[in-house]
Design a protein around this nucleic acid. Sequence first.
DNA 1: GATTGCATATCGTTG
DNA 2: CAACGATGTGCAATC
Lengths: 257, 257
Amino acid sequence: MTNRRFTSLENPTGEQTYKIIEEGLRKRAMILIFSCCRVCYYGRARSRLGPGERLIIIKPDGSFLIHQDRKVEPVNWQPPGSKVRVKIEDDGKILVESIRRKPAEKLTVEIERAHTISYYLARDIHELEVAGHEEDMRQLILESPDIIEKGFKPITREYQTSNGFIDILGKDENGSLMVLELKSRRAGISAVRQLKRYLEDFKDDKHGVRGVLVAPSITHDARELLEAEGLEFKSLEPPQELKKDHRMTLDKFISSR
Amino acid sequence: MTNRRFTSLENPTGEQTYKIIEEGLRKRAMILIFSCCRVCYYGRARSRLGPGERLIIIKPDGSFLIHQDRKVEPVNWQPPGSKVRVKIEDDGKILVESIRRKPAEKLTVEIERAHTISYYLARDIHELEVAGHEEDMRQLILESPDIIEKGFKPITREYQTSNGFIDILGKDENGSLMVLELKSRRAGISAVRQLKRYLEDFKDDKHGVRGVLVAPSITHDARELLEAEGLEFKSLEPPQELKKDHRMTLDKFISSR
DNA sequence: GATTGCATATCGTTG
DNA sequence: CAACGATGTGCAATC
């Protein structure tokens, strides 16, 4: 069946498969192929996948995905911007190649037999709205510093040390420096090490510096290391409020200056 | 069209969409729906996606993917093991829910109108064979230590320090300790910091300890920090040879003991 | 264009 | 089951 928005065909011949892929690429459509195929990849690594039935997705932006019937991650893929070519062999087999220039990577799919092939022109203007990132925590703390503790005053965000950027640098009510390390999910031992490294730049500070790990929760080993190092933990859930209106955010920003 | 391996339908009614999703779930098939839909997610974070045409994939292992017509990553998803339920509303709209228990996460898709719906029973026994990982580098170095430098002798792999595991610990021909940090791709500043941390445990060693970053290449800033810290860089590409025969590897292992 | 660091990261391995 | 580290991580923001 064919109309302007999509085309699909079941049990296509090799010729038909070739033609529909060509057409889909020309129209910059999203192409779906369910087929028995083999896959080779060469680039940052190298891989090979023996014959089996998988879903192939080619997107108009050059993204290329091969999905087996398990896992969230594609078994092979190419990123946006990759260039696709399709060839038909004498025996009717279809070869689809996707090439990326930098870094040089090549994905080759040999389609033995397609079960269904289709392409779609997707109308989709909306972007995903997300909340609950580390950045949302940061904004919350800058707007309401008392969440960390009474009298906490942020000085800067993204303060650079020789060991990377500190998320929030501030002072407590006694004027002691506080280094905050934010994590939007359960903090592990590596988060504590990160905080420990930031503090190295301040080890000569006379007033003493407090290191605080801010996260919804912390692993057992991480807490042990934290306490052994004289660091602190502050439990804080990342705010998950989706912004309904962008002007509100702007007003808030202006009024808070 | 219907047979044992797959079913597909174009411009299905709400009832038909519901029925095919039900059937696909029951048969533990891979379900594909191209439709206009809205998506909500709540769990580790929260997100909302307004109406638009996307590809929905439900895999028999519970993996759930929603793909827009751009990017490699799905715009929303649920991991393997999630449980799917489908409902039909009075107005013919379809609600698909995927729930994960731990952590608690819920994905809700409201299908306004499906353009095509299909399901497939995929025959696929092959696993992906990959080469070019950090582990391949490690094996290469343990088998042929001279690749690092003449006279290098590995002592242990995965040596534990207070700052994490060292990839390979060894000695040079003069008996000085060498700490190797392996990276399968271009090493950045964080790799140098990691190596720096490992060496802290050895800073009292009388003979002096050498820290060596082993990677195919290194960023400019990373090289600067490396040299400032008196560390070394050894260029090594991860071996990309796909193993043809597992016995060969075993033989090699036995003969090298 | 190169580099850095977050992510609903996902996924395998280990304790 | 929890936790830790690698990944062809992908991706956006920043330089």
